[in-house]
Design a protein around this nucleic acid. Structure first.
Lengths: 333, 333
DNA sequence: CTGAAAGCGCTTACAG
DNA sequence: CTGAAAGCGCTTACAG
């Protein structure tokens, strides 16, 4: 049987209270008493029962992180930094995948209390603003990413501005027929599409619906298939640049271009979004939107812990900076 | 305040026991009673307190998964499948990162009981066999990956055989100066190096220590730097093929080759390991070692749940099949 | 600085 | 089929 505080107290010749004091440092304990208790804990191989502590304290020291799909490099990198930032505050992370389902997103928000966690960091890709309703008792939640609303805390990068800037870069280099890959119902896709259109409009370039290309999935192979089919349909009427909604999609687009005997950036310039770890090693190295994922994660954790400790403080929305990283996947026309 | 079973029982006019029966289906409950209880739960927005349930039952319904580094595509894909396989058994997953530290790995094994989890799936990259000692009270643990030992359950792919086979393929295509990238102290690296050496020896090719290349890190940029420096040292004495210990390392190696004006596979053939999602979209598409990560994850979860329910059953070791996937990154010499 | 008691919310024998 | 009681292991007022 596992040892409990009572066992430790008995062996050390003190009360459970004293053991608790040693564990939690609530009160000062004389060095001798502390030594006795620590000896007893070691001898009995004592490990606190976190369920009991959670029941008593109303806190489990665990938070949940919900991301659409861990197989995406962006999500995996973000989770890594969230786990590290949480660990610095002695928090553990439970992982949930929403699979880009709005039901799953809404369910997580409403049922987070059951999940043995003190709070939730949710990257909602489908959640409509209307789903975040005032009046419903929400657990401590921080939304990361694309849904802007005033009901719960929010940390994000300005996707519209970032996509506009990277499109501006292509326009400044002389590109005029600029496609975008990754169009879809997700909030992320909507915002990035908006940034792209804004840039075109400001430059006096007419948006062409057929240059706004959706994908079967948001993996490299989905982009390769969709953009490859698009290229095959128009032999002489090719775009001279492609804005990809993620770096992973850019990998697929570049692959489709290469397989048709064309070159990047010689024939077609390609840009991405996220600056994942592999972006610099891609062939060619990818021009993309960078933001500091470690700072992003630390900010999200900080906002969440503030919310947990002060549930009634006003809602906050934090916009983190981004910048364009120029590499070799674009060249002037 | 949050509603409890007592509140629900009071509102439904029944005892807490009956509420519990409805929740857990322990006993049959008349449809009318069930309806009353469910109405009360809905009206009070009742959500069970999982800490209390965990304290009472000795089970939390949560398992921990410990991986060296989520930023590696292999780890992220594996975690995705583990979360899915766990969800099918109503288990949630808490994530830990070990950062390839043997202290952290050993600590997780010994302290898993504290972490509010029923069991642990650990991918140990540094853990020495000696660290898994008989006699120490271990929580339910399944090791996935490279450490073979008889003390705890184990699910893996035969890394030695797989690396030998992919090296054999290069030899069969006429390559003779074959380098390997990713050498290091990790168990994974040791086993894969062994498979590579075995293949060379069987073919009568002398192993050359300088062709066994270590990396500063196991990311693409580490491989690009190490292999690039290696190429720069030997202008005319290049290898004609490279076995990369992971697909991510292969991405870096290919990048280093291209940046020196050489071609893959024209000048140097390159193979990887893991068959990550992006491997087929790489430039060129990568020949690599494939295994079914979904089956791997389901097996690990199944073995762990068996261990949790029957702690004293004999230890088992499961070896899952692998195969070589041929793509365009190699060609005959 | 320490002890004895109460209670977090749940489920499980134990009675009826 | 249901009720009243006990207890999982912890921590926190409450006394001393």
């Amino acid at each position: 049987m596992r040892a409990t505080v009572r066992d430790v107290a008995a062996r050390a010749g003190v009360s459970p209270k004293t053991v608790s004091n040693v564990l939690n440092g609530t009160f000062r304990v004389t060095p001798e008493t502390r030594a006795k208790v620590e000896e007893a804990m070691a001898a009995l191989d004592y490990v606190p029962n976190l369920s009991a502590r959670g029941l008593r304290n109303g806190r489990t020291g665990m938070i949940a992180v919900a991301l659409p799909d861990l197989r995406m490099a962006y999500a995996a990198e973000m989770l890594h930094h969230l786990v590290e930032a949480a660990a610095e505050r002695n928090l553990h992370v439970q992982i949930e995948e929403t699979g880009a389902s709005s039901e799953r997103e809404a369910e997580l928000m409403s049922r987070a209390r059951a999940q043995l966690v003190d709070g939730l960091i949710l990257n909602p890709v489908m959640l409509e603003t209307t789903a975040v309703q005032r009046g419903v008792a929400l657990p401590p939640v921080v939304l990361i990413g694309e849904v802007d609303q005033p009901i719960v805390d929010h940390v994000w990068v300005d996707n519209v501005a970032a996509t506009r800037e990277i499109t501006d870069l292509l326009i400044a280099e002389g590109h005029r027929r600029i496609a975008i890959v990754g169009v879809g119902p997700m909030a992320t896709a909507q915002l990035r599409l908006k940034g792209y259109r804004t840039a075109l409009r400001a430059a006096g370039i007419r948006a062409e619906p057929e240059l706004e290309i959706s994908c079967g999935n948001w993996y490299a192979d989905g982009a390769a298939t969709s953009f490859g089919a698009f290229l095959d349909q128009r032999d002489h009427d090719r775009p001279d640049a492609v804005v990809c909604m993620t770096d992973t999609l850019a990998l697929g687009v570049i692959s489709a271009v290469h397989r048709r005997g064309l070159s990047v950036p010689g024939d077609i310039s390609v840009v991405g979004y996220d600056n994942i770890a592999d972006a610099a090693s891609m062939e060619p190295p990818l021009t993309t939107v960078h933001f500091d994922k470690q700072v992003f994660a630390e900010t999200a954790i900080r906002v969440l812990t503030n919310r947990i400790s002060e549930p009634d403080r006003p809602t906050m929305s934090v916009t983190l900076p981004h910048r364009i990283v120029r590499r070799a996947s674009t060249c002037p026309r």
